[in-house]
Design a protein around this nucleic acid. Structure first.
Lengths: 298, 298
DNA sequence: ATTTTGTTTTTTATCTACAATAAACATTTT
DNA sequence: AAAATGTTTATTGTAGATAAAAAACAAAAT
């Protein structure tokens, strides 16, 4: 098999669930644009919808005959892209207890366990290597460097440099910039979450990511943006893993964010830097406390 | 063909030129370690040296019979690793005049022109993408973002953050650290080059890279180190390309380096920061001036 | 004249195979 | 017994093939 048609299946599901009986569908290019796929794929979706009797399709006439049921959709295992499958599987492995720093990573073994070819695994590892968690010796194996204390400290250092820079840039944005509106909305979301913290503290990590992304966008720097992508992925898996004292930790972080937002809003660079440093210091503590115990420096 | 034996050929050449008639060669593991290859490859080298009548090899007895000549060596085209070939070829293309920002990059076309398979080109592009000069749209083509003014400014911003951090860390190193000895040697090299600047100004870029690498090593941060790798590669090709006013530019940079070294040596953090900023400001200017004219923001 | 659909071509994503290289194991030599 | 050599096995690096997806081209409809 050369390639899975996951793009088609995933887009098919996405389109099918949004269909409403008796409505007319737009033109092929419009459907393609809505779904973010090519017209070829959009046509493949229409073809299948037609074959399944979900729509009647004749050139420009496209009418929804019936609501698709769950049985019309592709199962979720078939809609995940190979890259996502590999990423999830790999992250689970390196966060598992028996993944000790210094461990070798075997491409063929990994590919077999995930049930995929070696090329995809190789490409994933190359992409993933920029997160600093694995390293390759040429003509030889990859080595897991792991979530060690060194890793956390190095990550935190760079994060602080970048965030202080971005926060300062944010403070310099002209007042008619969309970012200020987004920031105000963000404050409201923080307040809302705080009002129902006992129920909603688990949603904080998503809000946290969006908040810092908003700040970082102000710097308009591709290297900072890339680094934040890396952080987001690492935190995404890491927080799924480590959930100790989440409520207290998140509540405190929300308060810090609110102070930080107020400082940004004031436009006072000294206040911004101060609030940013306060938050970054506790974020660093959180990160260090959440390290897996076995992953001490190799 | 599955794989070129460039590791073997390159190591063979390296070992052959160092041979001296009538000397005895060490054990296989030792040879392998010297060359930085596996014993399998070391044995392949000994086998060929023996077949060519350059050595007599009988178990532990390995004697050099004659000095290898140029004709014994593999031609340089056969010793370059595929990765290096692709890198060189690709950098030449994106620095060429007709490489406009926004241009599409075609994997298959690139592979054919370089005379290699698509897999290697893909992997190269994935690795190269972290330098921020190209970008991929999933399921579609790569786009050349190019050496634009934005790129230079973003690069310079991050470089400044990192170098200020590293320089401060350097100033905090304990006095018995090897880095101080290296720094003193580095100052002497700068002075020597300055004494013969008209002849040697072209060697500055190598010294410049080594100098900044020394500074950055003090921060012991993998993200900073990786970023500096990227800078070094980009500058390597970029400076080969742009050579305007090299003598004056380099002479001034040497003076700045010497001031910077003196500041580091003093251990005074304020002086370090000042000297570092002075140098970084002119380095930024140099970078901006060296931009290709056509590569203005797309 | 522009937009939509129909059809063909190009390009990417992924698998498989295999030589080069590294690594492991076994035997011999000192 | 430790280190070297001899031999076998495992793993990586790369080419080539192919289905999926995108893109380009052509014809038809508003």
């Amino acid at each position: 098999m050369a390639r899975q048609n996951t793009v088609f299946k995933e887009a098919y599901n996405r389109y099918a669930v949004a269909l409403r009986t008796d409505t007319a569908l737009p033109s092929e290019p419009e459907i393609a644009a809505q779904l973010g796929v090519s017209r070829s794929t959009a046509r493949a979706i229409l073809t299948r919808l037609s074959e399944e009797g979900i729509i009647r399709w004749n050139k420009r006439q496209k009418t929804v005959l019936r609501q698709p049921t769950d049985r019309d959709l592709f199962p979720s295992e078939e809609t995940d892209s190979l890259h996502d499958i590999i990423e999830r599987s790999f992250m689970q492995r390196i966060l598992a207890d028996d993944a000790a720093p210094g461990m070798q990573i075997n491409e063929l073994e990994l590919a077999r366990e995930i049930g995929t070819g070696t090329t995809s695994v190789r490409e994933f590892l190359i992409r993933f290597s920029r997160f600093g968690l694995i390293e390759k010796r040429p003509n030889s194996h990859w080595t897991l460097k792991g979530f060690t204390r060194e890793f956390a400290l190095e990550l935190a250092d760079v994060r602080e440099m970048f965030e202080l820079h971005s926060a300062a840039e944010f403070g310099r944005l002209s007042r008619d910039n969309q970012a200020w509106i987004d920031l105000a909305a963000m404050r409201d979301e923080h307040l809302a979450m705080l009002g129902d913290i006992n129920e909603r503290f688990k949603d904080f990590s998503v809000l946290d990511e969006r908040f810092h992304l908003l700040i970082h966008r102000a710097s308009k720097n591709r290297f900072i943006a890339d680094f934040y992508d890396a952080i987001a992925i690492i935190f995404h898996y890491h927080y799924q893993w480590n959930k100790t004292a989440a409520r207290e930790r998140n509540e405190r972080a929300i308060h810090e964010h609110l102070d930080y937002i107020a400082a940004l809003d004031s436009g006072d660079q000294a206040a911004i830097e101060k609030a940013c440093r306060v938050h970054l210091r506790s974020a660093r503590q959180t990160l260090l406390q959440s390290l897996p115990q076995i992953a001490e420096s190799a």
